[in-house]
């Protein structure tokens, strides 16, 4: 038996929307600790990893040690778009061999003593679970900046080039691109905004390096403005995937690992 409820359906919708940018379907792994979702995109360039801990939800109950539900994200997103922002979202699942396996999605809106209810059932599909996991890494470089700023730069660069070059230096980040017709060059410097800390840019670059990334992936990561107005990018070097993370309360969040372009 699984049941979890959330008073902000918009946030869960944003998470699913962000995942569906890269992944068509993935396993939702419910345990007593919470929900985990992880998958590689079909090109094996980006890996999405989402954690929504038990305490992140307003109510959370999972009786099974581990429940693996294969979900089509496009369909789930359609369902979640039907949920009013002021509703209570409830996901539930009952283990029943006799019936088609489905995830129930319910939206409830308080109407005085009564409740308006909209209910959906999402048919589940079998997806082979991942047999691999992300290795533990010692990140040597870290940068934190407003998500909106990353979004703006990636959106601008996407107008000119499919590839963006990021040069991380001790005291600056240069983001650039070039095409046959033009070049673009952005410089981002660390600074502290004493009146609004969320505008600050922080860098801790121990080993400067340069990496090229596919622009549309970075742009899609930066769409997570609703998840966190700050993005943290962790790195080691050009050969190791970079991690972009957007944290939420209660140890929850969404993070991506992206492979860079290689020159050899």
């Amino acid at each position: 038996m699984l049941e979890c409820k959330l008073q902000e359906p918009k946030v869960f919708r944003s998470v699913v929307e962000a995942m569906s940018e890269h992944i068509k379907e993935c396993n939702f792994e419910f345990t007593r600790e919470g929900l985990k979702m992880q998958a590689l995109d079909s090109s094996h360039i980006a890996f999405t990893f989402v954690t929504l801990s038990a305490t992140w939800w307003n109510e959370y109950r999972c009786d099974d040690e581990a429940l693996l539900l294969g979900v089509n994200l496009e369909t789930l997103l359609k369902i979640l778009k039907c949920g009013p922002d002021n509703s209570l979202l409830a996901l539930s699942y009952e283990n029943d061999d006799d019936e088609v396996s489905e995830l129930k999605v319910k939206f409830e809106v308080d109407r005085g003593e009564k409740k308006d209810v909209a209910e959906f059932a999402l048919k589940l599909t079998h997806i082979d679970p991942m047999e691999e996991e992300v290795p533990e890494l010692t990140w040597t470089n870290e940068l934190e900046m407003p998500t909106q700023e990353l979004f703006r730069i990636a959106r601008d660069i996407s107008l000119f080039s499919e590839i963006m070059v990021l040069e991380f230096d001790k005291d600056k980040l240069r983001i650039s691109c070039s095409s046959k017709e033009s070049t673009a060059d952005y410089l981002v410097h660390p600074f502290e905004d004493s009146t609004n800390a969320s505008n600050s840019v922080r860098m801790n670059i121990e080993a400067p390096f340069k990496v090229s990334l596919t622009t549309h992936y970075v742009l899609s990561f930066a769409k997570n403005k609703n998840i966190n107005e700050r993005v943290v990018i962790k790195m080691i070097d050009a050969e190791t995937p970079l991690m972009f993370s957007f944290s939420m309360k209660e140890g929850s969040g969404i993070c991506y690992y992206i492979a860079g372009r290689l020159t050899d």
Binding site: L40, S43, H44, I45, A46, F47, M130, E131, E132, E133, V134, P135, I163, S212, T214, E239, T240, P241, Y257, A259, G260, R261, L262, T263, D264
Partner: peptide, 14 residues
């Protein structure tokens, strides 16, 4: 600009 890397060799077995 090089070629796009993949994540295949990045993961470790559980």
């Amino acid at each position: 600009q090089g070629y796009q890397g993949r994540l295949d060799g990045f993961f470790k077995k559980k």
